[in-house]
Design a protein around this nucleic acid. Structure first.
Lengths: 201, 201
DNA sequence: CAATCTGTCTACCATTTGGTAAGTGGCTGC
DNA sequence: GCAGCCACTTACCAAATGGTAGACAGATTG
């Protein structure tokens, strides 16, 4: 018989469940009791590891921002130059949408919650933002992309991609069921759209 | 001395305050007591006009969907043909963002809440969606716009415009303060982007 | 083996929440 | 002039919430 599986630590399991609930139902709609029950522990165990609900959110954001960063950094590492880098990032986001949708859901939720949660997320992702902004500007300078305010362009790209990936209800309103197959089509569509919107030639 | 001003009815004032709070703080984070206090009435007065918090949300959605519809219908009424119609709609949305931001905020919130709220909003806005989808398809058939799945294209346009208008925290993360002037720049940018993404030639 | 530390649980608690019940003052219609 | 309705209030309430205090079992360490 194998040794009893150690498995993920309690605090990790709490973070997982909290992430899922914050992303899926929202911060306010998430109760510590419910999270605890889903893990078959008591609320007090949660409060042992994280002194308050706010602190739990903070921890979830910290871990998620790190996960998000490494996912994108990894995608960028072997990505080539120019447009290929945009493609790599978009594909990486769609991969996250398929495999860890809660990560993107949390992004949405945090942006809705505003400070201090949003500020924390902002700070944690700032390096990526800087990089992306600088990249877009360089591409424009090189004459590869149409000229825009890089920050507004980044917001537009962000909104489009995140929307295509997280706006499940709007998708349904449009009569498109959010299946895995649909996700692939959306990825193709978004890439094509971005291409014609941004690329010169 | 003038006659005592009649002013808006209590139920309208409740709807106004509830809309603002649902859109700004979120449904779960909104308490009937707080809304009541802000209106200097009691919670029970709210429950007199709307039998439950859910019913209040329902009423807010109904009224907002109607307002949204008429705003867009009006914009479309004297709008010309082809691309001018897209421009008219986008401008109309940005006008709403400046004058009744809560209307767009509610849209976001409802899409986050999912059914049944989202279903109600979907049904109320379906005519607009149908119209937009048919318009896009016709423009593609006429060879004026690049061919895409009209529904996915609509989702992309929706995400971009709504994002540019409601993603205040992301905007801040990008170092752009959400002022009125910024809104005008964002409108110009989004129109330019959509133009190069969609229009052929 | 005693002392301590770790992780979890039981027992509470104050506050807030959506919601009910029962008035109450004023205006309307008969 | 009074019966009745309308709009709104005071008085409650059960449930749920985030959080505190303290006990307890098991491992660790001197």
């Amino acid at each position: 018989m194998a040794a009893s599986t150690p498995g993920p630590s309690t605090s990790d399991r709490i973070l997982d469940a909290a992430l899922a609930s914050f992303a899926g139902r929202g911060y306010e709609a998430t109760s510590l009791d419910t999270v605890a029950r889903s893990l078959e522990i008591t609320k007090q165990s949660i409060l042992y590891w994280f002194p308050s609900k706010d602190a739990l959110l903070e921890a979830v954001i910290a871990r998620s921002a790190a996960d998000l960063s490494t996912a994108l950094e990894t995608a960028l590492r072997g990505a080539g130059e120019g447009w290929a880098r945009v493609e790599a990032v978009v594909r990486s986001v769609f991969r996250l949408a398929a495999r860890q949708p809660a990560l993107l859901g949390l992004l949405r939720e945090v942006s809705r919650l505003g400070p201090p949660a949003a500020t924390q997320m902002t700070l944690a992702l700032e390096p990526l933002v800087q990089r992306a902004s600088a990249f877009l500007e360089a591409e424009m300078d090189a004459g590869n992309m149409r000229r825009h305010d890089p920050r507004l362009l980044l917001l537009a790209i962000y909104s489009t991609v995140i929307g295509m990936v997280t706006e499940v209800e709007v998708l349904r309103a449009l009569g498109e069921e959010p299946t895995a197959r649909s996700l692939v089509r959306r990825r193709a569509d978004v890439l094509e759209l971005l291409r014609s919107a941004l690329l010169i030639e």
